[in-house]
Simulated assay, not measured.
Amino acid sequence: MKTNDDLNYLRKITDLAHDYYLNKLSLGEISKKYHLSRYLIAKYLDDAISQGLIKITINAPQERNFELENKFRQLFAIENIFILKDSENPSLKNENVIAFAAKHIQSLINDSQIIGLAWGDTVYRVIDAFTPKVKENLVFTQFIGENMKYKSAAGSGRMVEKVAAKYDAHFVTIAGPLYIVNNQIRELLKKEPAFDHAMSLTKKIDLIFCGIGTLSSIESIPAWNESKSIIFPNVDFENVAGMLYGRPYNSDGQFLNIVNDKTFGLDIKSILQIPRRVAFTNSKFKARAMLGALRGKLLTDIIIDESIAQRILMEAGDNTL
């Protein structure tokens, strides 16, 4: 028989779980509301699951198509390729990629200390699907400048803050813009005290996770769209298959602005030396962008579903499956 203390405890963790999972309060907001440390909140949320107060159900198993994965490994020589089987329930199709990406990235975070991330709605949803944890000596950081979507919750700076709250961890932002056209100003800014700490952290990143972008991600931001030809001099925009790490690349995975890169942040050579670089997409319109990333070996881990995989094969001229 449960005592009053037991019942009070169950009510407390139920209230915490309700605020976190249903009201979408952050660990910081809950900490202020209940005057509890973030460590205790994470523990209470785990208790709520173990006590059966919260039931997390997956409506469809995240089954993988191992045959298709093996084909992609042979075609593109990438080991960490994850292709999820399409759900029979259309409403769950996108959620499977999000849930799998969240689980995979969190497993990699366990062995990392400094994590870089980009922005975007899909990245936001993956972070939202993270299980709250407390991990000491963990730092999340931008590795390139601010995309200037200041009114969006999926903007660069807010994204770093959001994921850090999931781990009660530190975060560092890069206050400068994503692109700086003047070469001298861009290089000198990196040495300013306001940016020096962030820039030094980017050189120690163990893991990057991001979505796959297209040219529309730049064109949707007026400041960049109006200056495309200046930001990307001599780039033929018809050849742009995708955007990754803030840079345009073609369907062969070749970056188109290496000679005159205006991106403020970590350079491409350093980015491609980061041990784990994870990207995911649940958009059928990004098959060409993903094909370029595969061909150029721009990523170490890729998470997609069957329908996108088939579109990639069609783009590549392979219709054998």
Rank of each mutant, 00 (worst) to 15 (best):
Q62T: 15
T141D: 07
G120M: 05
I98E: 05
K93G: 05
I127F: 05
Q74R: 09
I83W: 00
E136L: 07
L117I: 09
V134R: 03
I115C: 08
K149E: 13
G145I: 01
A102K: 01
G116W: 01
T122Q: 10
V139P: 02
T141K: 04
N80R: 14
S87G: 08
N110D: 15
V139H: 05
E146M: 01
A77K: 15
T122L: 14
F66T: 13
K55I: 12
K103H: 09
D128S: 14
K71E: 03
E146V: 07
K133D: 02
E146A: 07
N96T: 12
P90R: 12
N70E: 11
I83E: 07
A102P: 05
Q113T: 08
T141C: 10
Y150W: 09
N110E: 14
E88N: 14
V97S: 10
P61C: 02
E95P: 00
D86F: 01
H104G: 07
Q74I: 07
A99M: 11
N59P: 03
N65D: 08
G145Y: 02
A101L: 03
A77W: 05
N89K: 09
N59C: 03
L84K: 04
I127C: 02
I114S: 07
R64H: 06
F72T: 01
E95D: 11
R73Q: 15
A102H: 04
A101V: 06
D128L: 11
L75W: 05
Y150F: 04
L75H: 06
I83L: 08
M148E: 04
A101T: 13
K149F: 08
F72W: 05
A60P: 01
R125D: 07
A77S: 15
Q62G: 12
F130Y: 10
